[in-house]
Simulated scan of single mutants.
Amino acid sequence: MINNQFKTSVFRKESFNAAHRLHNANWSDEKNKRIFGKCNNSHFHGHNYDLEVCITGFCDLDTGYVIDIKILSDIIKSSVINKFDHKNLNEELTEFKSLNPTAENIAFVIYNLLIAKLPKELELKIRLYETRKNYVEYPARN
């Protein structure tokens, strides 16, 4: 039974390490270097990503949960961490064969991997920290 009186957001933090190269195959080497700088290194570079997953919904009256955090943790690990951790995003993930693995695009891909596993009545927001100073959110705030 759902309590329709209030929505609550629950958060789960995870982390993963991955390498990538920012590169547009339609551009010259000079333009790639000018636009992406050292992130265009042909030998790739890595980040220690911090991922925050926010789930918003109504609390279940029987459990008191929006979502069981253990279930959420298992979904994140199986759908994201196992797939991304210690990988070269450009070369090992099919999602980035034709999509530049910017933080924005990584968050978009993670969102789509997770939303497919969640009950339809739940809202999802991804916050991905590429560095301690830089992060992206998907979907964006209105």
Rank of each mutant, 00 (worst) to 15 (best):
N112H: 15
P139Y: 02
L118S: 08
R34P: 00
T56R: 08
V53K: 04
N82G: 00
V53L: 10
K13T: 06
K31H: 05
I75P: 00
P101Q: 11
R127H: 00
Y65E: 08
I75H: 02
P119S: 10
L118E: 06
A140S: 13
P101C: 04
I110T: 02
T63K: 03
D85H: 13
K70R: 08
K70L: 11
V10G: 00
E91A: 13
H23S: 03
E137T: 11
F58R: 04
I55K: 02
K13E: 15
E104L: 10
V53F: 04
K38H: 07
S79N: 10
L22F: 15
Y65M: 15
K38Q: 10
S9Q: 09
L114R: 03
Y129I: 03
Y111I: 05
D50Q: 14
A18D: 09
S78H: 07
N88Q: 12
C54H: 00
I110K: 01
H43E: 14
F44E: 04
A103M: 11
F16S: 01
A140W: 05
F6Y: 12
R132H: 13
L72V: 07
T131G: 12
C39M: 12
I75D: 02
L128Q: 06
V53C: 06
S78Q: 12
F84D: 02
W27I: 07
I55D: 02
F44T: 14
F84L: 12
T56L: 07
L61I: 13
D60L: 05
R141D: 09
F6N: 14
I106R: 09
L72I: 03
N32P: 09
N24M: 08
E91K: 14
K83W: 06
I55E: 05
K33S: 12
H23C: 05
N3T: 05
F96W: 05
V66P: 05
K117W: 01
V66I: 14
N105W: 10
K120L: 08
K117H: 13
L51I: 07
E104K: 10
N17L: 10
F96A: 10
P139Q: 07
I2Q: 08
T8A: 08
S42R: 15
K120N: 12
V53S: 01
H20V: 02
C39R: 09
F58W: 03
Y138V: 13
L114T: 07
G64D: 13
H86S: 14
E123P: 00
K77D: 15
I110Q: 02
K38V: 07
K125F: 03
E130M: 06
A107W: 01
A140M: 05
F58D: 04
H43V: 01
K70E: 10
V136P: 05
K120E: 12
K70N: 11
H45Q: 13
